[in-house]
């Protein structure tokens, strides 16, 4: 693989080394045939198909999509960005879990410590918070985009229903995280939100009791919503997301063109 463009020694040597490295057994065992990271990748229709088929992406994307579907102005990537934000929130959320204890008053102190004692603690918390607001926004915009394109029409009706459930779960995830800093904002915003549940007819008191884990908000409420926030709701939303993504492909990919 000596370079033929006359750049000479060093570039050629580096190219040689890089090619040799990317063709080594260890490297090729990591990247499946057709991967552009492998040595000797050539841009052919067959290899382009392999990039998708031999990849975890295979579960998300088909090998080919309608040309109008890749137009940025059609989807604005809103669904994909919602999923990406979910991934960002999962990663930053795991980081925060290392430094957070869902007890009173420790929860509040831990959040304070994030800003003072933990490297990048405040930054990661900011990302988690603003990312959560952004995700509510992108999920909502994704829904309106889908509506205006009529993308809920047969055979995509059920995926719309799953999408509405995902919107609800996104709101619940955001709301359940709202209480965790255990400050005045968290406590009273949560109070207003959870009081709405208590207006339910007949079951109002039971709903309220279940929501706050007692007759009034306490450290038990904190633990309850912590578990909902970091385990239960993410678990449920991942299940629904799987169905959602799977149905997108099964129902024929992006709808349209208009």
């Amino acid at each position: 693989m000596a370079d033929g463009n006359g750049n000479g020694g060093l570039t050629g040597l580096l190219n040689d080394l890089s090619e040799q490295f990317r063709s080594s057994q260890v490297w090729t065992s990591i990247f499946r045939p057709g991967s552009p990271f492998r040595g000797g990748y050539s841009d052919s229709p067959r290899n382009r198909s392999y990039v998708v088929m031999n990849n975890v992406m295979y579960h998300l994307h088909p090998v080919k999509v309608k040309r109008h579907g890749v137009r940025l102005s059609y989807t604005l990537c809103l669904g994909g960005l919602s999923f990406f934000l979910f991934v960002v929130l999962t990663i930053t959320g795991i980081f925060l879990m290392f430094y957070y204890r869902p007890t009173s008053p420790q929860a509040y102190l831990d959040i304070q410590a994030l800003a003072t004692d933990v490297a990048f603690g405040q930054f990661v918390r900011n990302m988690h918070r603003w990312g959560a607001h952004l995700m509510v926004l992108t999920v909502f915009l994704h829904m309106t985009r889908v509506f205006y394109h009529g993308a809920y029409k047969p055979p995509r009706e059920f995926n719309w229903v799953v999408g509405v459930i995902l919107l609800l779960l996104t709101l619940l995830l955001s709301f359940s995280g709202y209480l965790l800093p255990w400050d005045q904002l968290a406590l009273w915003a949560f109070t207003v939100g959870s009081t709405m549940g208590s207006y339910a007819p007949v079951f109002g008191d039971s709903v309220s009791f279940a929501l706050i884990g007692g007759v009034q908000i306490s450290a038990d409420t904190l633990l309850r919503w912590y578990v909902l926030h970091v385990l239960f709701l993410p678990f449920i939303i991942v299940l629904f997301m799987s169905v959602h993504f799977w149905r997108v492909r099964k129902d024929g990919g992006v709808s349209g063109p208009l």
Binding site: Q112, W130, L134, L187
Partner: peptide, 17 residues
């Protein structure tokens, strides 16, 4: 998201009362 997170801190008021 990174830019916003660098320049704008998430709110934290007083301890829950």
């Amino acid at each position: 998201l990174t830019a916003v997170s660098i320049f704008v801190d998430a709110p934290l008021l007083e301890f829950a009362n």
